[in-house]
């Protein structure tokens, strides 16, 4: 497991940031987020907490050559549960990927709270992401081999069908060609016969001249 940590500050009040958090998407820099849905939301007036479960839909962020890992799915999903405590002024969001989670899991925790130094005008943002890969190299290789065999089969089938159509087309030309060849051969034969008989005649004349003929 690897851990990613980050702390940022926003020069806005926590109230403003926490409200804007619901409108974070779409934004110009996060074009991979294509959907945000509220699956469940509960308000506890006694504790002053609001708990929300959301589904974040992203365009598949993985490179095309790795698409075989997810079976050609073009979307990935993240589930997020957030708790807002209006008395403590904290917004805590926990999220985990739903797609590919057998291979790689990213469990992220984000906390927005008023900056202790200037609580009215600044908000502190802490982010921790725990990244765990479950797939062994062996599993990845198996997956790659399965995919390759499948792809090879598909291409082989395509190859057979393609060559079949070529064979079918050429067949007609081939028979046409064979007919033409036969005609040509016949013509050549005829011509050869003509020439040969001409030669024979001439040879006969010469023989007569030189007395070779008995």
């Amino acid at each position: 497991m690897k851990v990613f940590n980050s702390t940022q500050f926003y020069n806005y009040s926590w109230d403003y940031v926490s409200a804007a958090n619901w409108c974070k998407y779409p934004n110009e820099l996060s074009t991979h987020v294509v959907g945000v849905d509220v699956l469940r939301r509960e308000f506890d007036p006694n504790k002053g907490t609001l708990t929300t479960e959301r589904l974040i839909t992203c365009k598949q962020p993985i490179p095309r050559w790795l698409m075989f890992l997810v079976g050609g799915q073009d979307k990935s999903y993240v589930r997020e549960v957030s708790v807002i405590d209006r008395n403590q002024r904290t917004l805590t969001m926990r999220s985990c990927n739903l797609t590919m989670c057998k291979l790689l899991r990213v469990y992220e925790t984000v906390v927005y709270r008023p900056d202790p130094v200037s609580p009215v005008t600044r908000t502190r943002f802490d982010q921790v992401a725990e990244i765990t890969a479950f797939a062994s190299l062996r599993q990845l290789c198996d997956k790659l081999e399965d995919w390759s065999v499948e792809r090879f089969g598909q291409n082989a089938r395509k190859g057979k069908l393609g060559f079949d159509s070529v064979l079918k087309n050429l067949e007609e030309q081939w028979h046409g060609l064979a007919d033409k060849t036969q005609t040509l051969l016949d013509e050549v034969n005829e011509k050869t016969n003509d020439v040969m008989s001409g030669v024979n005649e001439k040879t006969g004349d010469l023989a007569k001249i030189f007395g070779y003929r008995n």
């Binding site: 479960e53 926990r94 985990c96």
Partner: peptide, 15 residues
């Protein structure tokens, strides 16, 4: 997928 994730990190548990 969602049901699986809900079992692992329940809503009631704040995720």
């Amino acid at each position: 997928m969602l049901d699986e994730a809900r079992k692992e990190a329940p809503f009631e548990n704040g995720g």
